[in-house]
Design a protein around this nucleic acid. Structure first.
Lengths: 210, 210
DNA sequence: TAGGTAACGCACTAGTTAGTTACTTACAAT
DNA sequence: ATTGTAAGTAACTAACTAGTGCGTTACCTA
């Protein structure tokens, strides 16, 4: 009956609720704007528990941030791009990156907040470094396979390509509010999103094709 | 002697000092993180003056933001790209955008902060809309001239191109802290900056060339 | 079933924070 | 020279904020 017993006290569940609430709050108003009391309330936990489990606001932010990055890196691995042709693999990656940002808007704001604070909340994370190395190797492999079969040109730096793939989706979405004012466009209509994705796939393909 | 008289009371000078201090503070720690007392102190002005001249923290942010955008739009116009060949004009724009971000790092953080707050501080700015329209027309003109002489392909959306030109520079710089942790690279060395700019010019050229 | 341990809650502190009140003082126009 | 007005100041306040001290209670294990 253990699984069905409604535990009044459940450390794991409380921790998870705090993390979820913190992710949402940090994403909504940034590290500086987030309020510990608000996170506690939304997590239906006592504020004391945040200090008990995580140490403090900044430590909580570190955990939220690392989780967010590990989550996208894991999702990328799950794509199994090495089973696809180089061309398909790259297009799949561009589409995935775009869709991930759309489905997880809090990821973008968390990353922005982390960088406003000069990345200091991520500095020690060896887990993230390992995951990132694997990711770069994955892209390098696609580029090498493509160059080998003659589809792609040689000499494309996988890190630069990664940055560009992220940039063309990320920038569009994170700056959509000021963009909408300046360019008097609806950035988020179905048509607009579709057009941007098509433009981005085109950009990346023209960049690597032989 | 008016010009050389050291006025103890000078509304314009005080306003300007407040604006400069606010720009720096908002850029450093965001709207939420900035402290009105700190801005007043750094401006060597009394906090009361901020409320007197600008109304409040958020109104001050609005002015800072609008100024920042108008500044880059003016600088772009000053490039006189219509005097260059389409190809040179576009490369000049890519180089300029990149260099502007490097020379005015506060611009990027201000824009990030504005978007974290869903662009609401910019919503009413007709001045910015006018300047942006002129900017889009400038890029459209380059693309049309290029297409006319056969250098560029047809059908490239100038707004999408603008977004991409901004994105590939902006993203690299704003996310350089988390990027440095993940990819174990120095984003800001002279070599790295030069390589990124070259990569970006290449990306844009491949995107538009016929 | 007894008791130790970890989960949890209340109420507080010490320091901040945006914004204001009530005042003084320089300056320019008359 | 006088004086109205705008520039400038200092000392508040009321609300907020991260973090904590200390006591209580549920749950697991021996």
């Amino acid at each position: 009956m253990k699984a069905t017993t409604r535990k009044i006290r459940d450390a794991d569940a409380t921790k998870a609720r705090i993390l979820a609430a913190a992710k949402s709050e940090f994403a909504r108003v940034g590290l500086g704007g987030a309020r510990v009391d608000e996170i506690a309330e939304r997590a239906q936990a006592n504020k004391r528990m945040i200090y008990h489990y995580f140490g403090g606001k900044e430590d909580l932010f570190k955990v939220v941030l690392e989780e967010a990055y590990l989550d996208i890196r894991n999702a990328e691995q799950a794509l199994a791009l090495d089973h696809l042709s180089p061309r398909e693999a790259l297009e799949t990656l561009v589409r995935f990156t775009w869709q991930y940002y759309l489905d997880n808007p809090e990821f973008i704001t968390l990353v922005n907040s982390a960088n406003l604070h000069r990345g200091r909340h991520l500095e020690g994370s060896e887990r993230l470094r390992v995951a990132s190395r694997r990711f770069v190797e994955m892209v390098r492999d696609i580029l090498e396979r493509g160059a080998g079969e003659g589809t792609f040109r040689t000499g494309v730096d996988p890190v630069q390509l990664n940055i560009t793939i992220a940039a063309i989706g990320y920038y569009y979405l994170t700056n959509r509010f000021t963009g909408a004012v300046m360019f008097e466009r609806d950035y988020m209509s179905e048509d607009a999103l579709e057009q941007r994705l098509a433009f981005n796939i085109d950009t990346v393909m023209r960049l690597v094709l032989a």
